[in-house]
């Protein structure tokens, strides 16, 4: 690990000033990903600005009945918060499906959004990787890619975003607030992550030196659910996941939110599926047709075509569960 300086910020303005949009500096939140990447030599910042003591650790109900979640709220506190569990159950479930109790106590909301892919070529500095070293190539396309992307990828990078939390945030139309030396700004989560194209090293639309300060959720259908599939029962990254919220009246879909995890470089909002579902009968046939509408765009590699079937089945299962839950109440 390279040597670095360390400063602790106590207010947002001070944190942004300390970082000073310096490409060699990083904000340190829980450190669960950054410190690990520093050990691996993937990240080698010259300066760290610790933001854990910033007053950004609150969760408030907004005037319109949504939620504003501070950027340094820990994953544990987010998942356990009564208003999250009441209004955005899929968000609580998604966070609880990720990492371990220890890591959730450390990891922050802002850091979760900015965590890097766990693609083995990215974390191994002896491998080429276009995300880590632009122009060096992507060995995953021909190599180990069982957990690679099936949607929105390019020949330059097929890595998936590892967040569970982000999938639920995508389904719930989250808006990310940030602060730079110029002032405050906002990005809808839909615009937060950049398309892969030929610049996989550019991951977010955040301006240089920006500090994420909060994530805001508008009101959403009350029935929601997150389901994650992984290679062991717990404490593993997803190989596919679905966050869904559903509002059905008289057997017809009034409102639906659907997002997929572990299929793309970002949490994948399934808008084609949503469009197919709106106004359709809330039944298995509609759910299957919706999944097919979304997954028609899938471009699987040699060893990850299973994800298309997995996501189709997950979509049908989760929407069916939500539909039955609604009928039961």
């Amino acid at each position: 690990m390279k040597e670095f300086s360390y400063r602790r910020a106590t207010d947002v303005e001070g944190a942004v000033a300390l970082l000073d949009a310096d490409p060699g500096a990083r904000f340190l939140g829980g450190g669960t990903n950054l410190v690990d990447l520093m050990k691996a030599g993937v990240e080698s910042p010259e300066r760290l600005v610790d933001i854990r003591e910033l007053p950004l650790d609150g969760i408030e109900v907004t005037g319109d009945g949504g939620l504003r979640i501070g950027a340094t709220v820990t994953n544990s506190d987010l998942a356990a918060h009564p208003e999250v569990r009441r209004r955005y159950a899929a968000l609580s479930q998604a966070v609880l499906a990720g990492a371990s109790g220890q890591l959730r106590n450390m990891a922050t909301v802002g850091g979760n959004l900015l965590q890097r892919t766990r693609c083995g070529y990215f974390t191994d500095i002896s491998s080429p990787c276009n995300k880590r070293e632009p122009g060096s190539g992507c060995p995953a396309v021909e190599g180990e890619h069982r957990n690679a992307a099936i949607l929105g990828a390019s020949g330059h990078c097929v890595a998936v975003h590892p967040s569970d939390m982000g999938v639920a945030l995508a389904a719930f139309d989250a808006v990310v607030s940030y602060r730079t030396q110029e002032g405050e700004g906002e990005l809808a989560l839909a615009d937060f992550y950049l398309p892969v194209g030929d610049t996989p090293h550019r991951e977010t639309a955040l301006p240089p030196g920006a500090l994420i300060t909060a994530v805001t959720l508008p009101p959403a259908p009350v029935r929601s659910r997150y389901r994650k599939v992984r290679e062991r029962a717990s404490y593993a990254f997803a190989i596919g996941s679905v966050a869904a919220a559903l509002d059905v009246r008289d057997g017809v879909v009034q409102d639906v939110r659907l997002a997929y995890g572990a299929v793309a470089s970002r949490p994948w909002r399934a808008r084609a599926a949503e469009a197919a579902l709106l106004g359709a009968p809330a039944a298995a046939a509609s759910f299957a047709a919706a999944a097919d509408a979304e997954l028609a765009a899938a471009v699987p590699l040699a060893d990850n075509a299973y994800k298309v079937t997995l996501l189709r089945n997950l979509t049908i299962a989760v929407l069916t569960e939500l539909q039955q839950e609604g009928t039961a109440r």
């Binding site: 360390y6 602790r8 050990k39 220890q102 890591l103």
Partner: peptide, 26 residues
């Protein structure tokens, strides 16, 4: 030493944490 096994678990301000992914200075 990479936050994957839990052997280094201890309590920080009463909450369980991994000491291998935490800088002493922090």
């Amino acid at each position: 030493d990479h936050g994957q096994c839990g052997a280094c678990t201890l309590l920080v301000d009463g909450r369980r944490s991994l000491s291998c992914l935490q800088l002493a200075v922090a």
